[in-house]
């Protein structure tokens, strides 16, 4: 495993799209030390900012407050990055496979336009998680993003497939213009969830404000939630899916598009709680 420890907090954002298992695994330590990073308008060597230990391989550990370091793991297709500390914007953007785990918080555009792979954030994430970049037709095309804490605006914007799970309350426009896939909001959201959604599913375990362009359809426990619950159990995340616990109120919309998205809001049976 290769370990990179941040020596000093960069004075301006540092763009480090080359720090990813795909690039580093093929390199010698000397090549890695000389790897170009972009500090503002200047090009700098990796070893100006990082202490390097361990051996190059598909496993990568980054240590320190990297909240100013952008584009870590961009487009990675294999291997694993573990970050002990915070990470900056665009972490895992366009990733095609592999795994990222962050013991800290991340910036905006986490896993933006990713097509495969898994990201787990133990802290909070910024906005535009798994989203499409401005003007792009679709956001994440597959893969899984799990955030234990909160997330910002426009998570899952234009996502097509895949799963986003957020543990605490997210800000406005969750699932904006969503085209497919699933967003699980374990603690609900602020306003405008599902705005302009075309297809896909947003599940909320807490009540959330609805847009007037969503219609009530029914109240039940769809079968696919049991599959999802099983999948989430691997991550130690509980999803109520059994009739004795309660039911989901289903809404469809956004009729302004007009869209066929689904919003499922959990209504626990009296006395039953979700942890």
């Amino acid at each position: 495993m290769l370990q990179l420890t941040l020596k000093q907090n960069p004075p301006v954002p540092l763009e480090a799209e080359l720090i990813s298992p795909d690039t580093l695994a093929r390199m010698s330590l000397d090549e890695i030390r000389a790897l170009p990073l972009q500090l503002g308008k200047h090009r700098r060597r990796l070893d100006e900012f990082f202490d390097i230990s361990g051996a190059p391989g598909l496993e990568l550990k980054l240590i320190g407050d990297l909240s100013r370091v952008k584009w870590l793991g961009r487009g990675m297709s294999q291997g694993r990055i573990e970050i002990v500390g915070n990470a900056g914007m665009h972490l895992g953007a366009r990733m095609k496979g592999g795994e990222i785990e962050v013991h800290g918080n991340t910036g905006d555009w986490l896993g933006a336009e990713m097509s495969q792979g898994t990201i787990r954030v133990r802290g909070d994430a910024g906005g535009q998680v798994g989203a499409a970049y401005r003007g792009s037709v679709s956001g994440m095309k597959n893969g899984t993003i799990i955030i234990d804490g909160t997330a910002g605006l426009e998570i899952g914007m234009r996502m097509r497939r895949g799963l986003i799970v957020v543990g605490k309350r997210v800000k406005d426009f969750a699932g904006l213009q969503m085209k497919g896939g699933t967003i699980l909001l374990r603690a609900g959201s602020e306003i405008r969830a599902g705005a302009w959604m075309v297809r896909g599913t947003i599940i909320s375990l807490a009540p959330l404000p609805l847009l007037p362009t969503f219609a009530t359809s029914c109240s039940h426990n769809p079968l696919f939630l049991r599959l999802l619950a099983r999948q989430l159990a691997d991550w130690d995340i509980a999803l109520p899916a059994l009739d004795d616990q309660g039911t989901y109120d289903c809404y469809s919309g956004d009729s302004s598009v007009p869209g066929k998205g689904e919003l499922l809001i959990w209504r626990p049976r009296n006395g039953s709680t979700v942890q």
Partner: peptide, 13 residues
Amino acid sequence: TILRAIVKGQYVN
């Protein structure tokens, strides 16, 4: 958003 739905004759709560 409501206006967009009404323009298309779609449902509004």
